[in-house]
Amino acid sequence: MADFIAWVLVVVIAAYACGGGTDYGAGFWDLLAGGAERGKRPRWLIDHAMAPVWEVNNVWLIFVFVIMWTGFPTMFQAVFEAMWLPLALAAVGLVLRGAGFALRKPSRRLAQRRLYGAAFAIASLVTPFFLGAALGGIASGRVEVGTTASAHAWANPTSVITGLLVIAASAFLGAVYLCSDARRFGEDRLVDYFRLRALLAFAAIVVLALIALPVTHDDARYVWEGLTRGLGLLMVVLAAVCGLATALLLVRRSYGWTRYTSAASVALTVGAWGFAQRPYVLPTTLTVADAAGAAHTLRWLAFVTVVAVVLVGPALVLLYRLDTLGRLEPLTDADTQASGASETDG
């Protein structure tokens, strides 16, 4: 049962990496879009593409925390004691990012729009970095039960390179998805705009991955050995194939499958980490079995997970499907004003 819950946790992390990562990537390109006039069209597309699903994507992070503290309370305590600072900074970034995105569009003054836009964009860069840094600290074996908080746990070579890889992967996902969204909105210029940025982000991932090879070998040896053999290696190879397939499709301007291949590359990378780290949740000191909560708690958690998949899963699939088909459009200011006028007249 503990192994089942552990793999559920890995799957949910992968879902957040693909869903929330896309939103972080959109925020990254929002930051680099330029001034108010130059960045007007890219930011318009980002607002319209993210609005229908961005809150749903953040639900995956809630699932991660609930599964951690319910299924693996010892791990949860150890991670949050050792990593409270980067995780707190990531949490602040999440709040500022959501507030900036929600408040930017209805703001009338240019100064306010710039302020909220800056909060959204900068937090979209900071938050994934600190989440990746925390993950790197765990993978490098710097977190154990009883580890006190220190910069050593998350400001180390593996944490830094993981944080940068998370940013690059998010930028890659965001640009790929925005290519498809630009086609949906009939914005041919923005298709080429984000196509170029997706290819640049993929190149950055390749460079960072090459740098990560010796870093992981020296600094996170257990995970390195898991990634270079067995199922971990297989998942890495499949992730690389999906990433290369996405780049090739972008070069050929064939966008039909790019959403799926890019998301698969990220999800498979998370899966590779899961296989590389087993049977530990904290390499090499805390196994899945030792970190697991009470047996009856795990049984109820597994039951709730199955119920959630049956009841919520189809609704999420339908939501994402409707979004990719362009059936979900956010209300415009004109819509809300018209609604308010109707209520007043009534």
Score class of each variant (00 low, 15 high):
Met1Lys: 12
Asp3Glu: 13
Ile5Met: 05
Val8Met: 09
Leu9Asp: 03
Val11Phe: 11
Ile13Gln: 06
Gly20Pro: 11
Phe28Met: 10
Phe28Glu: 13
Trp29Gly: 04
Trp29Tyr: 14
Asp30Pro: 01
Gly35Thr: 02
Gly35Asn: 06
Arg38Thr: 01
Arg38His: 00
Arg41Trp: 01
Pro42Ile: 00
Ala49Ser: 15
Val53Ile: 15
Asn58Met: 13
Trp60Asn: 09
Leu61Asn: 08
Ile62Glu: 07
Val64Arg: 10
Met68Cys: 12
Trp69Phe: 15
Phe72Lys: 13
Phe72Arg: 15
Thr74Asp: 10
Gln77Ile: 08
Gln77Cys: 08
Val79Leu: 10
Phe80Glu: 10
Glu81Ile: 09
Trp84Gln: 09
Pro86Lys: 03
Leu87Asn: 14
Ala88Trp: 07
Leu89Tyr: 02
Ala91His: 01
Val92Trp: 13
Arg97Phe: 00
Gly98Met: 04
Gly100Met: 01
Arg108Tyr: 01
Gln112Trp: 09
Tyr116Asn: 03
Ile122Val: 14
Leu125Val: 05
Leu125Arg: 02
Thr127Gln: 08
Ala134Met: 11
Gly136Cys: 03
Ile138His: 05
Ala139Thr: 05
Arg142Lys: 15
Arg142Thr: 02
Arg142Val: 04
Thr148Gly: 11
Thr148Asp: 06
Thr148His: 12
Ala149Pro: 00
Ser150His: 01
Ser150Asn: 02
His152Thr: 14
Ala153Trp: 00
Trp154Arg: 02
Ala155Gly: 00
Asn156Tyr: 00
Ser159Ala: 15
Val160Thr: 12
Thr162Cys: 06
Leu165Cys: 09
Leu165Trp: 02
Ala171Pro: 09
Leu178Gln: 05
Ser180Leu: 03
Asp181Ser: 14
Ala182Tyr: 00
Arg189Trp: 04
Arg189Asn: 08
Val191Asp: 06
Phe202Lys: 04
Ile205Lys: 09
Leu210Arg: 09
Thr216Met: 12
His217Glu: 11
His217Tyr: 10
His217Pro: 03
Asp219Ile: 02
Arg221Thr: 15
Leu227Asp: 01
Arg229Pro: 00
Gly230Ile: 02
Leu231Ile: 15
Gly232Ile: 02
Val241Leu: 13
Leu244Tyr: 04
Ala245Glu: 07
Thr246Glu: 03
Leu248Cys: 04
Val251Asn: 06
Arg252Asp: 04
Thr258Phe: 05
Arg259Cys: 01
Arg259Ala: 06
Tyr260Met: 08
Tyr260Glu: 10
Ser262Asp: 07
Ala263Met: 14
Ala264Gly: 11
Ala267Leu: 04
Ala267Gly: 12
Ala267Asn: 12
Ala267Trp: 00
Gly271Ala: 03
Trp273Asp: 05
Phe275Val: 11
Arg278Gln: 14
Tyr280Asn: 12
Pro283Gly: 12
Thr287Ser: 15
Asp290Gln: 15
Ala291Glu: 09
Ala291Asp: 08
Ala292Val: 07
Ala295Gly: 00
Arg299Tyr: 09
Trp300Thr: 14
Leu301Ser: 13
Ala302Trp: 04
Ala302Phe: 05
Phe303Gln: 10
Phe303Pro: 03
Thr305Glu: 07
Val307Phe: 07
Val312Met: 15
Ala315Asn: 10
Leu319Lys: 06
Leu319Asp: 04
Leu325Pro: 01
Leu325Met: 10
Leu325Val: 00
Thr332Met: 02
Asp335Phe: 01
Gln337Glu: 09
Ala338Arg: 07
Ala338Gln: 13
Glu343Ile: 10
Thr344Cys: 03
Thr344Pro: 01
Asp345Ala: 14
